[in-house]
C-alpha cells in the first residue's frame, strides 16, 4: 500500500484593493468575494486530505498572508477552535482565520497614511510572494511525495504596465518552477496576466457576472492542472504578445528591430538610439516610383 499521494497546493491571491471599482460601488461585494473564495478554498481542501492551501490578500500598499496565519499572531487562537455546527474543524479554522486576518488588515489601513495616488494593486509582488511560499513548501517536501502547485488570482483591477518587468520575472519564474498561474478576472481584460497564464499553462477567465463567482471558480478552477486536460474547459484566449517600442513605449504590430542590440522601434531610423549602430536605408525603395513615371509616359 505504498501508493504515491500527489498533493495539490493552491495559493489564492485575492485582490482587496479598495480602489477597485467593484468595491467602491458596492462594499458588500467584498464580503461576497471573500465568502465565495473561502467556500472555494474549502472545496479544494475537501477534494483530498493531502491538499494544501495558502491565501494572500493583495492590497494597494502591501500584500499579506491571510492563511496560513503568521505563527506569532495566531498561535494562541488555533487552540481555541471548537467544532461549530458540525463543521469539519479545518474548514472552520480556514474560514475564521481568513476572515480575521483580512479584517485586521483592513483595520490597519486607516492608521497608516495613504501615500499619493498609488492605488493600483500590487499583484506582481503578491505573485512573487506566492512563488516564494510554494518554493519553500517544495523544499520541505519529503521525498517520494509529489506536489503540483498553482496560483489563482481573483481580482477586479486592471493589470498595470508599471509592474511590467516584475510581471515578466514572475511569469518566467513560475514557468520554470512548474507553477500554473490561473486568473479569474472579475472586471477588466488583463492582457499581461493573460500572457502569464499562457506561459504557465494556466487558465484565464473573465467572468461576465459577479453573482456566479463561486460557480465559475468551482467549475473552472477547482480541478488541478493534471486533470484539466480531460475536461471540457474554456479554450485558451488569444494572447496579445505584441512588444512595445523603445521610443514611445506603445504596442506595435510591425516594428524595426536593431540587429545588433535587439532594440525595438516603431519607425526606421538610420542610427540605432541604443547602440548607435548606423544602418543603410533599404536600397530599392526609391527606384520604383521612377519606373512608374516612365511607363505612364
Amino acid at each position: 500500500m505504498n501508493e504515491e499521494v500527489e498533493t495539490s497546493l493552491l495559493v489564492i491571491v485575492l485582490d482587496t484593493n479598495p480602489a477597485q471599482r467593484l468595491l467602491r460601488e458596492r462594499t458588500h461585494n467584498l464580503t461576497q468575494c471573500l465568502e465565495s473564495v473561502i467556500a472555494f478554498a474549502n472545496s479544494h481542501l475537501m477534494l483530498k486530505s493531502a491538499n494544501r492551501l495558502a491565501m494572500l490578500a493583495c492590497h494597494s500598499r502591501s500584500t499579506e498572508f491571510l492563511f496560513p496565519p503568521p505563527p506569532a499572531a495566531f498561535g494562541t487562537q488555533a487552540a481555541m477552535l471548537r467544532q461549530v455546527d458540525g463543521q469539519y474543524e479545518l474548514f472552520t479554522h480556514v474560514e475564521k482565520t481568513i476572515r480575521q486576518s483580512l479584517q485586521q488588515l483592513l483595520m490597519r489601513d486607516t492608521k497608516s497614511e495613504p501615500v499619493g495616488s498609488a492605488c493600483e494593486s500590487l499583484l506582481a509582488g503578491a505573485l512573487a510572494m506566492a512563488l516564494c511560499y510554494i518554493h519553500r513548501l517544495e523544499q520541505d517536501l519529503s521525498s517520494g511525495r509529489n506536489m503540483n502547485s498553482r496560483i489563482l488570482v481573483v481580482t477586479g483591477s486592471a493589470d498595470s504596465a508599471s509592474q511590467y518587468m516584475s510581471y515578466m520575472n514572475v511569469f518566467f519564474t513560475a514557468q520554470k518552477q512548474n507553477v500554473t498561474l490561473d486568473v479569474c478576472s472579475m472586471e477588466q481584460d488583463m492582457s499581461l496576466l493573460q500572457q502569464g497564464c499562457d506561459i504557465t499553462g494556466g487558465l484565464y477567465l473573465r467572468i461576465p457576472q459577479l453573482q456566479g463567482l463561486l460557480q465559475y471558480l468551482l467549475w473552472v478552477f477547482l480541478p488541478e492542472p493534471p486533470i484539466r486536460k480531460k475536461l471540457v474547459l474554456p479554450p485558451p484566449v488569444k494572447v496579445d504578445y505584441r512588444a512595445a517600442c523603445f521610443c514611445h513605449r506603445e504596442l506595435i504590430d510591425i516594428g524595426f528591430v536593431c540587429s545588433v542590440c535587439l532594440s525595438i522601434f516603431c519607425k526606421f531610423s538610420p542610427i540605432c538610439t541604443t547602440c548607435h549602430t548606423v544602418f543603410r536605408s533599404p536600397g530599392p525603395l526609391p527606384i520604383k516610383p521612377k519606373k512608374r513615371k516612365i511607363k505612364l509616359n
Binding site: A19, R21, E120, S157, A158, S160, A161, S162, Y164, M165, Y167, M168, L192, A244, F246, H248, R249, E250, L251
Partner: peptide, 10 residues
C-alpha cells in the same frame, strides 16, 4: 526594462 506605457490607469 520598460513595458508598454502604463495606460491611463483607470
Amino acid at each position: 526594462l520598460h513595458g508598454p506605457m502604463p495606460g491611463s490607469c483607470e
